[in-house]
Amino acid sequence: MKNQIKFAFHVLFHPADAYWDMKREKRGSLPFCLLLLLLQFVTMVIEEYCVGFIFDTSVGQTADILFLFATAIAPIFLFALANLAITTFLEGEGNFKDIFMMACYSLTPAILIRVVNTVLTNVMSLDEKTYITMLSTLSLLWVLLLLFVGIMEVHNYSMSRTVASAVLTIVSMVIILFLLLMFLDMVSRIFGFGYSIFQEMQTRM
């Protein structure tokens, strides 16, 4: 466990090295990745409940745990799926497990900074909002950087190929979301159609 945590921090500061080791020398573990994903969800819940009143953007609103769960977990799977689909065509070396683990490890800065930010929102006033925005921007950039380096190392890509696959990954994520929404819409329509037939039958017979 101690080694695992050490490795997660290793990812933070030496992503290229760490992701190479993860793929080629079997460092890092899937259970720990799942733990990270869980931590992502847990810190989001903590943030929702413990954020200082001054910085609360959902004053008077009830928290939706299921929605939080989805926003914590779904993007990672979506990314892994889209990236796998793209890199299969672009001669990537990583399999689904590699990509998934890479994505999970990339969440570490977001998790850490979220905890720090939640504490800070309770002591800071609106005048010091800049620090909090700065930190959250930092966490976003860090995560994106880790993902970028991750794609490069896991698939053993050159820089230009990484850029191309990153862009294509984003595009395919959008396409997957679109298809998913369309599918859901269609299912609900089919269900509605069936239901109206049922209603018709019920009232006529």
Binding site: F53, I54, D56, V59, G60, V123, S125, L126, D127
Partner: peptide, 18 residues
């Protein structure tokens, strides 16, 4: 201010209180 959902003024009062 907490009751009024008034974040800006809450922040002002909080700064003084702090």
């Amino acid at each position: 201010f907490l009751l009024a959902n008034d974040q800006e003024n809450y922040s002002t009062a909080y700064t003084k209180y702090r």
